[in-house]
Amino acid sequence: MPEKTDRVQDQLVAFLPNLRRFAIALCRSRDMADDLVQRACERALANEQRFEQGTRFDAWMFKILRNLWIDDIRKRKVAGPQENIDERHDIAGVSGEREMEARLALNSVAQAIGELADDQRDVLLLVCVEELSYKEAAEVLAVPIGTVMSRLARARKNLAEATGISTAPTRSAVIKGVRK
């Protein structure tokens, strides 16, 4: 029996804000995100024994949630928009999306993140926002670490271009800029 504090069920509730943020950024709708988060928690609890002690719980949860999301997209593509579940999602998605847009309009960086290609956005979220290492992100996305790096570099260049992020020399910050 694992240590109580390491157990998935003991960490889940505290992690909900992060998981939900990741979900909203992925599907750009709060309603869909909440549904996604709930299903991810359900799956995590059902597969609790598969969580490897000593590995990052957040990375594990992000992977579960993202895989569910990818399944959803795939199902939608196969089934077409007539399928009931998609109908529900689309209806939920419309209001949610508008809400997200309203919020995003206030923040051009968030908007630019939302406009990135999915594969670039995902890696940016995991590394820059959720602070996973390249290796951990590669594990979540099930791609080689080299792919993580090339996508991440592209994502950041695109983000900088879209938002006009200042790239003026800030020498002192940079010299101290090595994070770890």
Partner: peptide, 30 residues
């Protein structure tokens, strides 16, 4: 320095941009 700064800035800004989502209360229902 400029090229490195771009990578540092994008990280910082991406984090700041999505911080409000983290501060948002999780719906009670969820």
């Amino acid at each position: 320095v400029t090229r490195v700064a771009m990578f540092i800035e994008t990280r910082t800004q991406a984090q700041a941009a999505l911080k409000p989502l983290l501060d948002e209360p999780v719906p009670e229902k969820l």
